[in-house]
Simulated scan of single mutants.
Amino acid sequence: MLDVSKIKAISFDLDDTLWPIWPTIERAEKALHDWLGFHAPMAAAMFSGSGALSEIRSEIGMTRPDLKSDLSALRRESIRLALQRAGENPQLAEPAFDVFFEERQRVTLFDDALATLDFLSARFPLVSVSNGNADVAKVGLAHYFRASISAREFGVGKPDPRIFLAAAGALDLVPQDVLHVGDDATLDGLGALNAGMQCAWLNRSDHLWPHETTPNLTVTGLEELCALWRQPA
């Protein structure tokens, strides 16, 4: 059960918690492909099939385990390898990635995200904790968060307890003071619980919780979090 009295801060996952990630990635990949079509047409043609660049990313992931927590570097190196295999200039990987990254920051928030961030940030310090490469400043949400912890910068991703400890530490708190909110049962839910945080699992799609240890709270929308502190009329 959730103990509201212990909560002094709230940490938020980003992708698929505040916005749906796959429409964003699909749009960014289209922008990347369009750019390659003009600047590196051989690479664009060779890797135009569905999943082609994804297969290269998987290959890079196996040969470069040091990039596991840095999705930006992983994608950049995947683009570089695609260019090399197509006989194009691999130096185009940098500007090509920039096109992808810029579009990746243009997210469409879930309908309940802004109202929830407005409500909760007025009551608690918030910190974002993400394995992805969204930038809360570029997304336009930086003013809601006291700190932002990313796997790319920290070097370790969820569900490793250390990234949750870092999130609590960024607010000068211990994990027991923090409620973590996220959509992924393992990365967010189990990771936060193992770090000593309370966890609110955001389950928008009626998934089954897959672990023996259960979340302190399950919600189907972010607005349910606000109801925990909203005074009855």
Rank of each mutant, 00 (worst) to 15 (best):
M1Q: 07
S5N: 08
D13R: 03
L14Y: 05
L14F: 12
W22K: 13
I25N: 01
I25H: 02
K30N: 12
L32N: 00
L36R: 00
S48M: 12
G49V: 09
S54P: 01
G61K: 12
T63A: 12
P65R: 05
P65V: 08
D70W: 00
L74N: 03
L74V: 06
L74C: 12
S78D: 11
R80K: 15
A86E: 08
P95I: 06
V107K: 02
L109V: 08
F110T: 07
D111N: 13
L117M: 09
L120S: 02
L120T: 03
L120P: 00
S121H: 08
A137Q: 13
G140Q: 05
Y144K: 07
F154E: 10
F154N: 08
V156M: 13
D160L: 04
P161I: 04
F164A: 03
G169F: 02
L171T: 05
L179R: 04
G189H: 01
G191E: 01
M197H: 06
M197V: 05
M197P: 01
R204I: 06
R204E: 08
W209C: 06
T213D: 13
T213V: 15
T213I: 14
N216E: 14
G221Y: 05
E223L: 10
E224H: 15
A227F: 05
W229Y: 14
P232V: 12
